[in-house]
Design a protein around this nucleic acid. Structure first.
Length: 803
DNA sequence: AGCACGCCGACT
DNA sequence: GTCGGCGTGCTC
């Protein structure tokens, strides 16, 4: 018996299964989908691998000597047949390595950790034995253990074969346990002990009586025993010491949320909701993709929950994806209320251990409903009956590091595999999805009415060109201030959106015009008042605020542009009685901070919630009747063909926060472009009109959804090397590809340097040109060949970020 | 990724 | 002669 193993060496040349012998003692344990440790390469370095197949004899043409699997890391398969097949497809689709996909599918703790050791194999002199090895035969070998001088000595020792370097694979995945108590004594034996106790040993008597009630072999948790019998640990420990009972670890789950939720019942649907649900139910057992286009407040979530319930009742499981940012406690609560302990939640707020435990609950089929952000699309559910992707247009569904997958593509694949309907839901669908619904590839379900027939909020534009606000350095217009005051008088709340954190966006010398730049990136630094520093939002560089210009020594340093911190101070000045909560990356970076701030706002501990785009989604507060957008234009200036779409989506979403209950809402949008179609159509709440208009633009400009795009990006510490590489690739592509493929570039990225690396890119646009796939595979080989000298090449299918 | 091998200039 | 730096090829 032989095993096909994908090894943990993410390179193009090793992106294939290797054949290993299975030692006799492991023969009955090794199965497909299990993690193993194998020797790989010279020196038989140990690496982690995944068994992806078993063979009997044929070696796939390999005629060398086989090595054997060293050990197994799991006792059962942790990647099932479906996910294994998916990993194969997704690796090809995203131009990434199979091992990277397999790693991405599993909780972080299951990724291999390697420890490097130095081992003595021959006699060495005492200076080395004690100086480097501290008298031991084996030491951990990392950057800290050796100084530069001993490193030179070491090279010599290695050449002389006096020491060897070895690697060991360790799994970080730890099962959490608590201590449990059991007894191996019989009822009668315990009775005898009780009789022998001193009369004042009341507690021991109580404990022994309890132990008598246990079934043979039954283990009770120590803390439960303590609580139930009101005992101290000392009593239990004495019993253990006497041999009356023994300790036994019990496996437990880390509980991410201990709050007990009250179950609720399905709500009554309005007629459009009921019709949509009917169609979804009718498609049960088929791989149908639906686009559920529903205005904010139309009750999409209730449709999802009832559709999930339907599949659960038929013995199936369900997967629901939401963007990370809207995976709020409110949302989790809502799902848990309906499905109780069947729900597993996967999101970034969990610790690595908690995530692992939720994953195990799914894998053991204890949880049948999974709700989570992007990576939850790989949840090890079996027998999936329905997949839901809420806010399907959200860019966070695409991972912007390797492997660059889009959760929507994975969702479609799994939907096809399980014959399960896929529901893409949004108030503002991506043009790609909306166009597919138009063509009939997806079934379009529309929800145009809101629950309780609420009117959509009135949206007013404030034309900043007409204002003299900049002269006064005021970032909130007077009519918006008046409106906020009115809400405060009525004990209602306001939400203000400003899509820029920090205090001001750049710092400039008024005498010489110098803008203070990041030393590592080609971008201006942002002023942060709370830390009294200038920060780079790309690499995290931080420096003191200069008191004089570093160029001309002038003291006329001035802050330009507005960030959330500045508006917060401004509001305190203009509305001294207003209580403001600021929510941005700076105030929510600590674990649980996000939740705490929202809870405080929900409890009316503030009148105004001021924040970046993270406040636009998912939050639902009944007393918010006013929404203000302070800078609707920032998104429009970005060099990206989706700039209008993003602006429209953001404005529509944030507008949806106003007036959800019985109170009508009002929205103010401050803009320098009041005639821009994205802003006008967001004002009119007219997605369909926006869709038709934007489609024309995309058609003319040859962009999605009419064309596919691939971004090829090279980066290098040396600018000329990066530029040269891309010029060569550009020439090569023009030779290899027909004129049907548009090749844009190479051009420097809009921020050409980030973290001291220079970026150049090429964009490919094409419709149905099969050769593109093959050319991209060839390009990967070029990328691999050049990776040695610090060149990084990225191939990104359907990039969402052109910056 | 990490290791060996081979080529080539520099040094005891 | 041989030490050590770097480019290249290979890993069941």
């Amino acid at each position: 018996m032989l095993a096909q193993v994908v090894v943990d060496v993410p390179t193009r040349q090793t992106n294939q299964p290797y054949t290993y012998a299975i030692p006799e003692e492991l023969r009955q344990y090794v199965v497909v989908g299990m993690r193993v440790v194998v020797p790989f390469g010279q020196g038989a370095r140990k690496v982690q691998g995944f068994v992806v197949g078993l063979l009997t004899t044929d070696l796939n043409g390999f005629d060398g000597e086989l090595k054997a699997i060293s050990q197994i890391l799991d006792l059962y398969p942790i990647v099932n047949a479906e996910l294994l097949k998916l990993s194969d497809w997704l690796a090809n689709w995203t131009f990434s390595f199979r091992i990277s996909i397999l790693q991405a599918m599993l909780p972080n703790v299951m990724r291999a950790k390697y420890t490097r050791y130095l081992q003595l194999v021959d006699e060495v002199d005492d200076e080395i034995l004690y100086g480097i090895f501290h008298g031991q035969e084996r030491i951990i070998f990392d950057e800290n253990t050796l100084t530069a001088t001993s490193l030179a000595q070491l090279a010599k020792l290695r050449r002389n074969k006096q020491v060897v370097v070895t690697y060991e694979v360790t799994s970080k995945a730890k099962v959490k346990t608590e201590s449990g108590i059991q007894t191996s004594l019989s009822f009668e034996q315990l009775e005898d002990i009780k009789l022998g106790l001193r009369a004042n040993a009341k507690q021991q008597n109580k404990l022994l009586s309890y132990l008598q009630t246990l079934e043979p072999g039954e283990v009770v948790s120590q803390h439960q025993l303590r609580d139930r019998l009101a005992l101290s640990n000392a009593v239990i420990n004495t019993a253990v010491r006497q041999g009356w009972a023994s300790k036994q670890p019990i496996e437990i789950y880390r509980q991410p949320s201990k709050t007990i939720v009250q179950p609720d019942q399905p709500k009554v649907l309005h007629s459009q909701q009921a019709k949509a649900l009917q169609k979804i139910k009718a498609a049960s057992g088929t791989p149908t993709t639906f686009l559920l286009e529903g205005v904010t407040g139309s009750g999409k979530t209730e449709v999802y929950l009832q559709a999930i319930d339907y599949e659960l009742q038929h013995g199936k499981t369900a997967l629901m994806l939401v963007p990370e940012i809207s995976l709020t406690p409110q949302m989790m609560h809502r799902v848990k209320k309906r499905f109780g302990t069947k729900v597993a939640v996967l999101h970034s707020g969990l610790s690595a251990g908690e995530r692992f435990d939720e994953w195990r609950r799914i894998e053991r089929r204890e949880a049948t409903v999974v709700i989570g952000a992007r990576s939850a699309i790989f949840a090890p559910l079996e027998n999936i009956g329905i997949i839901i992707m809420d806010e399907e247009h959200e860019a966070s569904y695409k991972q912007d590091e390797n492997p660059r997958y889009h959760a929507r593509d994975v969702a479609k694949w799994r939907s096809a595999y399980y014959n399960a309907p896929l529901i893409l839901g949004s108030a503002t669908p991506s043009l790609e999805s909306r166009a597919r619904a138009q063509k009939g590839v997806y079934q379009l379900l529309m929800l145009t009415e809101r629950i309780n027939q609420q009117a959509l909020p009135e949206v007013k534009l404030i034309d900043l060109r007409q204002k003299i606000m900049h002269a006064k350095e005021q970032s909130v217009a007077d009519e918006l201030l008046v409106a906020i005051k009115e809400r405060m008088a009525q004990h209602e709340q306001s939400v203000l959106l400003l899509n820029r954190r920090g205090f001001s966006s750049f710092v400039m010398c008024r005498d010489c015009g110098l803008v203070v730049q990041c030393p590592n990136c080609d971008i201006g630094l942002t002023l942060h008042m709370d830390t009294k520093t200038l920060k780079c939002h790309y690499c995290g560089h931080e420096e003191a605020i200069p008191t004089q210009c570093p160029n001309c020594r002038s003291k006329a340093i001035k802050y330009y542009g507005t960030g959330t911190q500045k508006v917060e101070i401004e509001l305190q000045k203009l509305l001294p009685t207003a209580r403001v909560i600021r929510m941005d990356l700076d105030t929510t970076s600590k674990k649980g901070a996000h939740e705490k701030l929202l809870k405080a706002f929900g409890n009316h501990e503030a009148d105004i919630l001021l924040g970046t785009q993270m406040i636009a989604k998912g939050l639902d507060f009944p007393d918010v009747t006013l929404v203000g957008v302070l800078n609707a234009d920032t998104g429009l200036g970005i060099p990206d063909f989706r700039a209008s779409e993003r602006t429209f989506q953001l404005l529509t979403q944030v507008a949806g926060r106003a007036g959800r209950a019985d109170k009508p809402g009002t929205v103010f949008i401050q803009t320098y472009n009041p005639t821009h179609y994205a802003i006008k159509m967001a004002q009119a709440h007219d997605y369909e009109k926006f869709y038709r208009y934007e489609m024309q633009i995309r058609h003319l400009a040859k962009y999605a959804p009419y064309y596919f795009t691939i971004k090829i990006q090279a980066s290098h510490a040396d600018e000329r090397t990066a530029a040269l590489m891309m010029t060569k690739i550009g020439q090569w592509l023009r030779q290899r590809l027909t004129a049907e493929v548009t090749i844009l570039g190479p051009t420097p990225r809009s921020i050409a340097r980030i973290k001291n690396r220079f970026y150049y890119q090429i964009i490919l646009k094409y419709q149905n040109v099969p050769i593109v796939e093959q050319v991209m595979q060839e390009l990967q080989l070029i990328a691999q060949a050049n990776s040695r000298n610090g060149m990084q090449l990225i191939i990104d299918r359907e990039p969402l970020n052109f910056m």
